[in-house]
């Protein structure tokens, strides 16, 4: 599996589980790199079932939201499925305020997210 700087990607059966290296996802260069690494899962590695586990993430800016939205779109275009889990209440509130909770498939726990494929 290729090495990434901003994420760790492990396979659980057919599902790729992604965790984030940074607790705070806010600086522009980091967000660009994060986006490139996430998109490569779809575009280079042909992953089609992806879970983003936010357990390590304490903060993300709206620029990071943009990358998640683009990833979601790329996954859907590739006939894949993206799920998110372990999101802290404050970040969940960000998703709710922006109504992205209607766009993203959000589950409480990683096991639940994996089982939902």
């Amino acid at each position: 599996m290729p090495t990434h700087n901003r994420i760790d990607a492990t396979k659980v059966g057919d599902v790729t589980v992604v965790t984030f290296t940074d607790k705070k996802i806010l600086d522009e260069a980091g967000i660009q790199e994060l986006g490139a690494e996430l998109f490569s899962l779809i575009e280079r590695d042909n992953r089609r079932s992806i879970v983003l586990n936010f357990d390590n993430v304490d903060f993300l800016s709206s620029a990071a939201l943009g990358k998640l939205i683009t990833l979601d779109r790329k996954v859907k275009q590739a006939q894949g499925r993206l799920k998110m889990c372990r999101i802290k209440p404050e970040i969940l509130e960000v998703f709710q305020v922006t109504k992205l909770n209607k766009v993203f498939d959000i589950r409480d726990e990683q096991d639940e997210a994996i089982a939902a494929f």
């Binding site: 943009g66 960000v94 922006t98 766009v103």
Partner: peptide
Amino acid sequence: LEAPGGRGVMLMKS
């Protein structure tokens, strides 16, 4: 909803 940007002001307000 799926536009990549334009959420900053709403987040500040909220």
